Amino acid sequence: MTQYITPELRRWLQEQLQSGVKATDLVISMTQAGWQRKLALQAVAELKIDGWLGTAEAPRPAGLPEPDLADGASLIDAGDRQIQVLATVQHPRVVVLGNLLSRDECEAIVAAARPRMHRSETVAEQREGSEVNTARTSSGMFFERAENPVIERVEARIARLLRWPVENGEGVQVLNYQAGAEYQPHYDYFDARHASTASILKRGGQRVGTLVMYLNTPRRGGATTFPDIKLAVQAVQGQAVFFSYARPEPSTLTLHGGASVLEGEKWVATKWLREGRFS
């Protein structure tokens, strides 16, 4: 059975640490209860490293990608398209967007990606590179920046919408989730403890924002979930969800996942934004 660190577990661990329970005793207690030792060590280490800031928002550094939400704007001019602001959350910064992509654009991206799909991987923890992870049961591919006219147009729109340079974005990744596929809760920033992180950061620094664009509407399931804040964003063709994270820490509350597709399939396009120029 796959195990992962849930918000409920982190809150319980926080309470134990604050009450004076030793970290080593917590790890022993978790392993005796059936938790994998590696996961128990990771859970306790994360809390000790970031001091658990809870829901108190730390100062937001200048220079994060961000739509212009001044004066409660409900529409944002992205150059060639008016983007709808459907919902916002302050902490973590989450913005649900409508009318980001047209139906034709969604279908064109899927058509270009479909022949190049392969089993999705995640950043390897113990070695350089990536690896298949049972927590992620999708297939995917990456476009190069400006690889075709549709991708180039969408990237320019995103840059204007989020006020972030095109060159600071990774190539668009397209993912396909068949019925039963999911991506269990995770963070998008690069973990300093992973072997690959040092080399990854040389190519533009940390990730600071994520934009998930929905290329179709599954018949049931497939929402993007944020367990820390009990938020679920339904996958609706042409819409998107954006979130940013000022620090590579769980205190950003950006734990998120792709809920299991219950009927039909789900296609998404993800754009990750870096601190600096991505090469």
Rank of each mutant, 00 (worst) to 15 (best):
A112V: 03
P92H: 05
W12Q: 15
D104P: 09
E167N: 00
I109G: 00
V236N: 14
Q173T: 02
T197A: 07
Y187P: 06
D68P: 06
P7H: 08
S102T: 15
Q16S: 14
P61N: 13
E131H: 06
A33P: 06
L162T: 00
A33Q: 15
Q239I: 03
I83C: 04
T254Q: 04
A179Y: 05
S244F: 06
N168T: 05
Q237W: 08
G221M: 08
L86Y: 04
L273G: 03
M141S: 01
A23C: 04
K48D: 09
N176M: 06
P115S: 04
L69Y: 08
T31D: 04
K38F: 07
V268I: 11
R116C: 05
G205S: 13
Y214I: 12
T134Q: 12
T210A: 08
G276V: 02
V94M: 11
D191I: 11
Q184N: 11
P149S: 00
E125G: 10
V44P: 10
S138M: 00
L75D: 11
S130A: 14
L47I: 11
S120L: 03
H186R: 05
S19R: 13
A179V: 13
T254K: 03
E155H: 03
A181C: 06
V89G: 11
V132M: 09
L201V: 07
E275K: 14
Q3Y: 04
F278D: 09
K22Y: 02
E105V: 00
S19G: 03
